[in-house]
């Protein structure tokens, strides 16, 4: 792939939920080989940005290009080609509960390759070993702990050896030790498998540990994109609030406030 083409290129992306604007014309790009962390508080629009990058939501305006392809306008075949080259680990794991862990990991191989059954079995077990879940392939997802579910989901995400890996909230709901282990795993994946990794998180500690570059989102705007050191040193007040866990000062507009209180629904 041409190095000049960024793996992800988002331009002037706008997103709405009903009458509420979630993203205000976001520009965003990720180059090959980096670990990019998208950081922001709740409601900053980071999950919405992720859904658009995965092609799960269609942009109202603006474009999202993966590997140079506009995924909202690509043909089914092109979209499938893009999806074979990305891996996604969802916040809750999203393992199919009707399949065993091994079948979950093998699912992309079964659907997209013509490999024979024993090769598929070996490859999926190999990926389970990578995430330290060797020997767990016959369990059902419901029998795993939270950290194990996330690692199994990661194994499924990397089973096709994607060039681009998305990771939604790796440390949400995990104890500090397990989440530190996951951070190590992410770093290892980048080094061993040369993946480009996009992590969405609100955990500062893990963000600073794994990130090459950080994009800070706040209320639908990109506040800045920079290295860990640059973000730490940023003068922006909202970024410092986020870093130092300061509560936001909510500006109350008296007229707007009254209007909200007295408005009739309709």
């Amino acid at each position: 792939m041409n190095a000049a083409v960024p793996l992800i290129e988002v331009e002037k992306l706008e997103a709405w939920y009903g009458k509420r604007r979630i993203l205000n014309g976001v520009d965003f790009r990720v180059d090959a080989g980096e670990i990019r962390v998208i950081m922001g508080g709740s409601g900053s629009g980071k999950s919405t940005l992720l859904r658009h990058m995965l092609g799960l939501n269609r942009p109202v305006s603006g474009t999202v290009r993966l590997f140079g392809k506009d995924i909202a306008r690509a043909s089914e075949r092109d979209k499938l080609e893009v999806r074979k080259r990305i891996g996604v680990s969802f916040q809750g794991g999203a393992l199919l509960t009707s399949l065993t862990v091994g079948e979950n990991v093998a699912l992309p191989l079964r659907e997209h390759t013509a490999l024979d059954e024993s090769t598929i079995r070996i490859m999926s077990r190999l990926k389970l070993e990578v995430v330290n879940l060797g020997g767990f392939q016959d369990l059902m997802p419901a029998q795993l702990s939270g950290g194990m579910v996330k690692r199994a989901a990661l194994a499924r995400a990397i089973v096709m050896d994607p060039r681009l890996l998305f990771f939604d909230e790796p440390s949400a709901g995990l104890d500090p030790v397990v989440s530190a282990e996951l951070d190590e795993l992410i770093l290892r994946l980048r080094d061993a498998l040369r993946m480009t990794i996009v992590v969405v998180t609100h955990e500062l500690e893990s963000a600073f540990k794994i990130a090459d570059t950080i994009t800070v989102l706040d209320q639908g705007d990109v506040l800045m994109t920079g290295t860990v050191a640059e973000v730490r040193a940023a003068a922006n007040e909202r970024i410092q609030d986020l870093l130092n866990r300061r509560p936001r000062e909510v500006q109350v507009d008296a007229d707007e406030y009254l209007r909200r209180l007295t408005r009739e629904d309709g």
């Binding site: 859904r51 995965l54 092609g55 799960l56 979209k79 499938l80 999806r83 074979k84 990305i86 996604v88 969802f90 916040q91 809750g92 999203a94 393992l95 199919l96 509960t97 009707s98 699912l107 992309p108 659907e111 997209h112 499924r156």
Partner: peptide
């Protein structure tokens, strides 16, 4: 029930991004 719980737990999204 099956498809409903799969959408709630993002399994439907997961299928879509796997390319299924």
């Amino acid at each position: 029930a099956r498809i409903g719980s799969m959408s709630v737990s993002q399994e439907v999204d997961a299928l879509a991004v796997i390319g299924i």
